[in-house]
């Protein structure tokens, strides 16, 4: 366990160095990428922000609570980009569908360690994370919240759980790519895109049935709306342990299905490349 952790820290260091080298090689491209990340990610929350600004509240959530929620949504996106966006780690169906899992199976590290470390881009991928932190700080001052250790711990724990929930669902649907590599290559894009586009929507004004569906079967509400309300001490009709339970359930199913898919992949391999190395 300690050995694995040391190995992961070392690998994170290597990927951080590679990221820094990439920035130093072409600063203008780096700046352009940062702008693209921030603009395209903020665009997904701008609509709700403008509605909150115009109406003062949506479904019982006040303007500043909604801004806090949008900050949390940006934070989650920032964590995903910083830790899992390089080499399509959060879009694993691309790796599976393109037959690139082979590249990882011959490495002297276990697959899960590679998946946990390979997507790390702390410099070029940090802009969204800082945006999220900035929006959260702004909204907490407007909400007159005293930032305590307990408050910070809640944000950190919930944001990690929300990130792992998104990754679990991305990995779960990506298992299709083991069996149908061409058709399934982009399914993770739709899964990640679903959360990216919709997590900033407040569910407070929706019916209880819709809230249940959107926090269990299709848990978009667990990636911003639900944790925000818990952190801000708002009363919900949903249990306080829902996020952790649903994350564990989805992570377990994803791990089981992924292992099953990997066994299939081990037997059948990938059909994506011809003998001459061209992708079909």
């Amino acid at each position: 366990m300690v050995g694995n952790l040391k190995r992961m820290i070392k690998l994170w260091g290597i990927y951080a160095k590679l990221d820094l080298v990439w920035i130093l090689r072409n600063i203008s491209l780096f700046i352009a990428n940062v702008i693209a990340d921030v603009v395209s990610s903020l665009a997904t929350v701008t609509g709700v922000f403008l509605l909150a600004q115009r109406f003062g509240e949506i479904g019982g959530m006040t303007k500043h609570q909604i801004i806090f929620m949008l900050g949390y949504a940006s934070l989650i996106e920032g964590i995903r980009i910083m830790f899992f966006s390089m080499n399509n780690i959060s879009h694993i169906s691309r790796i599976i569908g393109r037959g690139q899992l082979d590249h990882r199976l011959i490495q002297p590290n276990s697959l899960w360690i590679q998946l946990m470390t390979e997507g790390f881009i702390p410099f070029s991928g940090s802009s969204m994370l800082f945006c999220g932190i900035g929006i959260i700080i702004y909204s907490t001052t407007k909400l007159n919240i005293l930032i305590s250790l307990a408050f910070l711990s809640q944000i950190i724990i919930f944001s990690l759980l929300s990130t792992f929930l998104i990754l679990s669902i991305s990995y779960l649907v990506s298992c299709i790519a083991f069996y149908a590599p061409v058709a399934g290559e982009e399914v993770s894009t739709s899964a990640v895109g679903l959360f990216r586009s919709l997590k900033g929507f407040p569910l407070s004004g929706m019916s209880f049935t819709n809230q249940i569906i959107l926090t269990t079967v299709l848990p978009i509400g667990l990636t911003a709306w639900y944790p925000t309300n818990i952190i801000l001490g708002e009363e919900l009709s949903l249990p306080n342990y829902l996020l952790i339970v649903i994350t564990i359930i989805f992570a377990t199913i994803a791990a089981f299905m992924f292992k099953k898919g990997l066994n299939y992949y081990g037997k059948k391999g990938s059909i994506r490349y011809t003998d001459r190395g061209h992708r079909r």
Binding site: V48, L51, F55, E57, I58, G59, G60, L198, F201, P202, S204, G205, M206, N210
Partner: peptide
């Protein structure tokens, strides 16, 4: 669907 639900929330309030 989400957008329609938002409009519904705003109309209700």
């Amino acid at each position: 669907i989400f957008l329609i639900l938002i409009w519904e929330s705003l109309a209700k309030q």
